[in-house]
């Protein structure tokens, strides 16, 4: 165990130990995965003593700066966030249960490992069945003959941050990198990120949005607590002075290896006004399109046909909620 007190020291320590080390944020996913033998770090670099990585503040330009080590509870309760980014506050408030939200961090949720029913199991279980593509094996138990891991992105905050066009600030041995969250993901369940495991997510920035806007995040799960999402949909609507929509963003998680930002939502919804028939019509068209485009895979709890049927329903509910600023 190492407990550095600055981000520079943390990154240097990880560079020193290389593949043998991992960062530990809240530990609510890392520790279960270590107990299952999925992560086998010899050195764990705890980030809890780095004060610079905690807290939420509003910068002069109106943007929000959220330290990656800010707890999910704090994100969910922060007045700055509930006002400026309701979808993010809602997403943070439904991650797992209260204890895990007290421990778990926003950065940890963004950088969460992908999940699969054939992967998130004990070593005994995985060994008995035969290892899979994501860990130790060469076969995929989800897609017959599959050569690419399809473990599912299961982070609730990711789609909310995508609708808010968040920018992620990383520090790696090669320097600082600022990445729009949309560019973080790749469709590879083994490691679904375009930064290496040696990059430390230091903070999340939410740009200031012009004019009034509303947002919402809805999560499908078996129980109303503890569970990972079986489907998660975030929506954001920006309104013009006359109450009509001028921009719209929708993103979904728990479908496949990466969270997905739906394309051309602004094109479909711009100019329509909630409460009027043009909004209802555009909503139906968008829901039908999303139902066609978004296909959950059969590798996390919840029947995939049911989850697919819930796509348009959750999308509609999320947009209706977002339309009430």
């Amino acid at each position: 165990m190492e407990y550095p007190t600055t981000v520079e020291d943390a990154v240097a320590l990880l560079a020193k130990h290389g593949d043998r080390a991992m960062f530990l944020a809240g530990g609510t996913d890392l520790l279960p995965n270590m107990k299952h033998g999925l992560f086998e770090p010899e050195v764990v670099i705890g980030l809890g003593a780095i004060e610079d990585m905690k807290g939420i503040r509003k910068d002069k330009d109106g943007s929000l700066h959220i330290g990656a080590m800010t707890s999910l509870t704090e994100v969910a309760r922060s007045q700055l966030i509930t006002e400026a980014a309701p979808a993010l506050a809602q997403a943070a408030s439904v991650v797992a249960g209260p204890q895990i939200r007290n421990m778990g961090t926003l950065g940890g949720n963004v950088m969460l490992d992908t999940r699969c029913q054939w992967y998130n199991q004990s070593h005994f279980w995985r060994k008995s069945l035969g290892y899979c593509l994501k860990k130790d094996g060469t076969v995929c138990h989800v897609i017959e003959g599959g050569k690419k891991c399809v473990a599912a992105a299961s982070n609730d905050t990711a789609p909310a941050l995508m609708t808010l066009a968040a920018e992620l600030h990383f520090l790696s041995p090669s320097g600082e990198v600022a990445l729009p969250i949309e560019e973080l993901w790749k469709a590879d369940g083994t490691w679904n990120k375009n930064v290496g495991p040696d990059a430390l997510l230091v903070s999340v920035h939410l740009p200031a949005l012009s004019g009034p806007h509303g947002g919402a995040y809805l999560k499908l799960r078996e129980r109303n607590a503890i569970d990972f999402p079986q489907l998660g949909i975030a929506a954001r609507l920006g309104f013009a002075e006359d109450g009509s929509i001028f921009e719209a963003a929708v993103a979904a998680t728990a479908l496949g290896p990466r969270p997905i930002l739906l394309q051309s939502t602004t094109k479909l919804l711009a100019g329509t006004t909630p409460g009027e028939s043009n909004f209802e019509e555009a909503l139906l068209e968008l829901c039908a399109k999303a139902h066609k485009q978004l296909s959950p895979l059969a590798n996390i709890p919840g029947d995939e046909t049911y989850r697919k049927r819930m796509v348009p329903i959750f999308l509609k509910r999320a947009l209706v909620l977002a339309a009430q600023p």
């Binding site: 407990y3 530990l24 279960p32 204890q99 895990i100």
Partner: peptide, 10 residues
């Protein structure tokens, strides 16, 4: 918080 997921050093 959950003691099963906390390292004492933290």
């Amino acid at each position: 918080e959950l003691a099963c997921l906390l390292l004492p050093g933290a």
